[in-house]
Design a protein around this nucleic acid. Structure first.
Lengths: 139, 139
DNA sequence: CTAGCGGTTCCGCAGATGCAGCCCGGTGTG
DNA sequence: CACACCGGGCTGCATCTGCGGAACCGCTAG
């Protein structure tokens, strides 16, 4: 098991958040290196895809750049639920919804409300990583 | 201070990650409610923008749906640095780069490597929210 | 008061993306 | 073995998005 993770075009497309056609065009344009399997289907190496998605994520979004420094996800507040002592704040950060539980006092003090811009900050030691059952095979 | 956060078209565009032209077209198409200020400039209400970004984030991406349940950010591993006892794993989740610090043993056990698909899971109590110096005024 | 600067509106254009249609190859089931 | 189903390759088309240009408005500095 060399463990080289490879993706088919559909899998890569889902990961990148675009259609398979777009991934195909990127490959044909040479922007994303890929090979072909015995059936003529395009095969994308996991490491290549990682490099591509990293490059794509850095350039266009300066806000992502500012974020990429240390787990800073910038977004817009979509919900605020205030309890007596605690409060829950939902932030939409790009395609993800991040939920934060904090004291009600903190919410009041920050004056967080629906529509406000906020940044979700996460200590890297509190991030748990799960492997995905998935797809990519080892070849 | 009623605290109704409002955005100008450029600010909304930056938040949504698109150009001001696109936001203008969305408004003209009725997809995003907006008013006009005394100068004829479009003005977007923060709550409306929040509703819009929430809807936009849920529909297209089923993977985001699966993620939105509880701070589950799915992405691709872009870097793995192994130290003697600790390890750092970088995951590109949409436009954001998430860094996780974990024991080296955990990395080996999960068989995490560049190009693997992984999910960053974050307890909502460990998410710190910062307000942005920003923009949106109170009217 | 005037000039300069930044942001917005509106217009038109070129490139990128998504989608539908059609054919092919691999897989599983009866 | 025959059949249906699924994912992929390839083509063409409609749409969306971003960019540049020209004019307008509001704010600030001189």
């Amino acid at each position: 098991m060399l463990g080289v993770t490879v993706f088919r075009i559909g899998e890569a497309a889902e990961l990148l958040g675009v259609s398979a056609d777009t991934v195909r065009r990127w490959i044909d344009a040479g922007r994303l290196p890929a090979g072909r399997d015995e059936a003529g289907h395009r095969v994308v190496d996991g490491a290549e895809l990682a490099a591509f998605v990293r490059a794509a994520g850095n350039d266009p979004d300066e806000r992502a750049d500012a974020s990429s420094a240390r787990n800073r996800l910038r977004g817009i507040v979509t919900a605020v639920v205030k309890d007596t002592v605690m409060a829950q704040v939902d932030i939409q950060c790009g395609p993800f919804r991040v939920v934060s539980l904090m004291s009600r006092e903190a919410v009041d003090e920050l004056d967080l409300r629906v529509g406000s811009v906020a940044v979700a900050v996460i200590k890297s030691t509190t991030v748990v990583v799960e492997r995905v059952p998935s797809k990519g095979r080892t070849s």
